[in-house]
Computed example of a mutant assay.
Amino acid sequence: MSYIPHPKGGKAAKPASAAQTPANPDLSDSGSPVSRHIRERALSLSEILVLRLPPDIELLGRLILAGTLGLLYGMRGGGKSLLAMIIAYAIAGRKFVTPWGQGSGDAVCYLDGEMRIHGFQERLEQLHAFNTDEESKSAVREKLWIVSRHLIGDLVGTLDTEEGQKSIEAYFPPKMRFLIIDNLSAWTSGGGEDLHGWQAVKTWLIQLRLRGIAVLLIHHAGKGGGQRGTSAHEDLVDYSIEVSPMFLEDEPEATAFRVEHKKLRDQLPHLKSPYSFRIRTADGAMRFSAEAVILDSQKQLDLVVSLHEQGLKGKEIAKASGLSEATVSRRLKEHRESRPETPN
């Protein structure tokens, strides 16, 4: 993990304007046959259907792709930041996290605007201690970058002003593909909850998307349980995740929460089920696990079949769903037996 100092004696680097930013850098920079004259006009359906596009760049399974925007929200103290750290670590360290999938090993920048650096450092140490893969540990040391407002000792900037955006962008590490903003309230002058302030943030997020940078916004839930402030927050994002605290009678000292995907722009059937996360610390290491919250056998069957139809095998389905291999085997057997026999 690395901390990024501000450039000494220099001005913050100016981010590319909408005019300077390619309409789709992945298309223009990857040798794609998509030419500029096609990008700068409306296309007919016949053109769209034959258009050759570069494949999506997966950062964490099929949920977090390069250029996607996500929202993770929940009540105070409910586990939002812990979950965001796990996601950041998995992407930087090429680790698998249920239910999302494999991390890519790309550079990640974590903007922390609230925590004391001592507590933040302790969490990262515990998370790092749980990783037994030396190659992964070596990668994450170089690819996970931290911008701590407490450590810097300055406000740094806010996301709802152009000046603040320039100041914050000066901290971005080279070749960064994933940015976590923890949290929207801490990094905006008005808490990021009113529509006017959100418009400035929204424009900046679109610029990052056009540069191929994925962003995960951390936000507080309101009294009703939904994300706090204007509903426009969820209009732009590709996915939103609600985190709800849970109490475990068998392990009351553990941090536990329920994760539900409230919005999924892409077709990801296995994420329609809620998942329960359990995080505990032992011997200086943060240990965590996740499993699908399946209310009945039919939902288990639907989940297993969905993953099977995506090409996953038994062990892979168990890993992605949080179900045991025995349960996966039973459900696959039920699925095979329920299909009508093909006549000879």
Rank of each mutant, 00 (worst) to 15 (best):
F178M: 06
P245T: 00
F120N: 03
P340R: 06
P25E: 08
D133N: 10
L127E: 00
G225W: 06
G153A: 02
I213R: 04
A12Q: 03
A12S: 10
P343M: 03
S46N: 06
R228D: 01
I64A: 05
A107H: 13
P340D: 02
G153R: 02
S306P: 05
K333W: 08
P174I: 00
L264N: 03
L72V: 09
A90Y: 04
P33Y: 13
A19R: 15
R141E: 12
S138A: 14
I213P: 07
E122L: 15
G226Y: 04
E253I: 09
E251V: 10
K11Y: 13
T327E: 11
L71M: 06
W204S: 11
V34G: 13
S185V: 13
R339N: 10
V201A: 05
E337N: 14
G105V: 01
H37S: 15
G222F: 03
A326C: 11
G10N: 12
L59T: 04
L264T: 05
Y110N: 01
V243K: 02
R177Y: 05
T161D: 05
Q165T: 08
E193I: 03
G70Y: 06
H196E: 09
Y73D: 01
S46H: 07
L82F: 13
S189C: 04
D56G: 13
R52Y: 11
G67M: 09
G284P: 07
L184T: 03
L195C: 00
L60N: 02
R265L: 05
L49S: 07
L43D: 02
D283F: 12
I87K: 04
C109T: 10
R177H: 12
Y89N: 03
Y3F: 12
V328L: 07
K11A: 14
S297G: 14
I168L: 13
R280L: 05
A320V: 07
E337G: 14
P15M: 09
A16E: 12
M1H: 08
E249I: 12
Y89I: 09
Y239G: 02
K299G: 08
K315F: 09
S297R: 15
T98Q: 07
H118I: 14
H150D: 15
G10W: 07
G93I: 01
A285Y: 02
H220L: 08
D29Y: 15
L72Q: 04
P252W: 03
P173Y: 00
V304N: 02
G284V: 01
A129D: 08
L216P: 10
G105A: 05
A282L: 14
A221E: 00
S138V: 13
A282T: 11
E162H: 13
F130P: 03
R123L: 09
L59D: 01
A256Y: 09
E337V: 12
L49C: 09
A256H: 06
K14R: 14
E193A: 05
V304G: 02
T68P: 11
S81T: 12
A23C: 15
L151H: 10
G190I: 03
Q267V: 12
Q227P: 13
L83R: 02
I91D: 00
R141S: 11
F288T: 02
H37A: 13
R39N: 09
R116V: 14
A170T: 01
